[in-house]
Amino acid sequence: MSFLTELPIDLAELLAEVAEPDHGGIATFLGTVRNHHRGRGVLRLEYSAYTPMAEAECARIAAEAAARWSVAVALRHRIGRLEVGDVAVAIAVASAHRDEAFVGCRYAIEEVKRRVPIWKQEFYSDGTVAWVDPTRVEKSGIAEGVGHGGWSAG
């Protein structure tokens, strides 16, 4: 099973992966492509990855959540071209009780964003293209670099 996929994500497949008779709940998160970014119209995205490391990092995140909260974790991230509204990332976390499912799901998406080597190119309605840098913050309408945590990840 791969965590990265070039095909549309099938949520039912993730739900089936984590289903167990002793589970009482499944928390899910779907990240979708939005049509705007910092005031600009977004037409589509293109995700790329350092595939072997992205796979390894997703496996580590799923294992960490499983060990910490006794949950089952299913995770997928799209790579390649995506259109507005497409599901880019999907996470399903199942557990005996809902608290662990919610907290495990939140942990998984936050760690995916923080640690998994995936990059996103946005194609804007004005015809321009840019690599997205979530570490840059808006200030007076101008994006300014503020560094990105340097060596701290991992």
Binding site: Y50, I109, R114, P117, K120, W131, P134, R136, A153
Partner: peptide, 21 residues
């Protein structure tokens, strides 16, 4: 981190700001 030693045959990747999710 930057102080990590490297050995022959290692694969080092330099990663732009991550933008998954």
């Amino acid at each position: 981190g930057p102080d990590t030693p490297v050995s022959g045959g290692d694969e080092i990747a330099i990663l732009p700001p991550l933008a998954g999710g």
